[in-house]
């Protein structure tokens, strides 16, 4: 079951194409990474799903229903550009955000209390935002995004502007929400930051989707069957020329390709040259895969 399904989506701004014949399916209960450089079309896509702007053509389904106004109740959105009313009290502000999402005042109040307790903000609930530290305001901002318990949570560059301590807190909250069944879309251009968090990713570059799939699968497909080796050569042994060969203090390091052989075969061949200290498969990072994909699409 896909919580979000997008088909043949097109959006232009004048002559600039922001999204071209875009398809996407976000499985329920996953953390879905929407990756790509700035200006790739991520924010446009997110704004269309949030019904902030309209698409030129194409269709969008939420839980099998064509996207409509009442769906805002099911979506939580943390935009890249975000803020709060500075002169408004923490509690009042959260209540307002919950209410405009469609929550009843009484139901909202108890949820607000729970969240403030969870993120240790209770002593600050009657303070104005301008009296809070930046870190605390960021926590309030996060609560405002999730207070109405959305089924789909869309976070655009969620960790930008967060200090490391708060980023860690938010990361844990995201994982907890995922365990409760919330689907989370993480949009970012800093790919290394979400690699460990995402189950599934889609990569966008210049209005096109260039890669889409579960992280494990993508990584598996991207394997180049190369291994990094650390070896202490036998005395007097002359080594054949290896790639990335490097003389270290007490050992040498280089890479080898399997070339159709099993890893164990390669290891036993290497053992003839000396003592093998390390034999490790080289797995490309998401970023490396992305760059490789872009190069492929240009080639």
């Amino acid at each position: 079951m896909c919580i979000l399904k997008i088909e043949s989506l097109n959006k232009r701004y004048g002559h600039h194409v922001a999204l071209r014949d875009f398809h996407l399916a976000v499985p329920q209960g996953t953390v879905f990474g929407l990756l790509g450089p700035n200006g790739a079309g991520k924010t446009t896509l997110i704004r269309i799903v949030n019904q902030i702007i309209d698409q030129d053509s194409g269709s969008i389904w939420i839980n099998g229903e064509s996207l409509k106004l009442s769906h805002v109740r099911n979506i939580g959105y943390l935009p890249e550009e975000r803020g709060l009313y500075k002169a408004m009290k923490v509690e009042d502000q959260l209540l307002y955000f919950a209410q405009i999402k469609g929550l009843e005042a009484r139901a909202a109040a108890s949820k607000i209390h729970l969240w403030l307790e969870k993120l240790s903000l209770i002593p600050w609930k009657s303070k104005k935002i301008e009296e809070l530290s930046k870190g605390m305001a960021q926590k309030v901002q996060f609560i405002a995004t999730v207070i109405h318990e959305p089924k789909l949570l869309i976070l655009d560059e969620p960790f930008s502007g967060f200090d490391p301590v708060n980023a860690e807190i938010i990361k844990n909250e995201i994982l907890e929400l995922k365990n409760k069944g919330t689907t989370i879309i993480l949009s970012t251009h800093r790919m290394e930051s979400v690699e460990l968090l995402c189950d599934h990713i889609a990569m966008i570059n210049k209005a096109d989707k260039i890669l889409d799939g579960p992280v494990k699968e993508i990584k598996k497909n991207a394997k180049m069957h190369r291994y990094r080796v650390k070896l202490v050569p036998n005395p007097g042994m002359v080594l054949p020329s290896f790639e990335h060969y490097k003389q270290e203090e007490d050992h040498v390091s280089f890479t080898v390709a399997l070339e159709g052989k099993a890893p164990n075969e390669v290891i036993s061949e290497l053992m003839d040259y000396g003592e093998v200290h390390c034999f490790e498969e080289i797995i490309p990072s998401i970023e490396e895969i992305f760059i490789q994909k872009i190069n492929e699409s240009h080639g």
């Binding site: 949030n50 979506i75 943390l78 935009p79 803020g83 500075k86 955000f97 405009i100 405002a144």
Partner: peptide
């Protein structure tokens, strides 16, 4: 103060 994008994701 960039509240606007949060608001328009909930309201017209």
């Amino acid at each position: 103060s960039r509240i606007i994008e949060i608001l328009v994701s909930s309201l017209k």
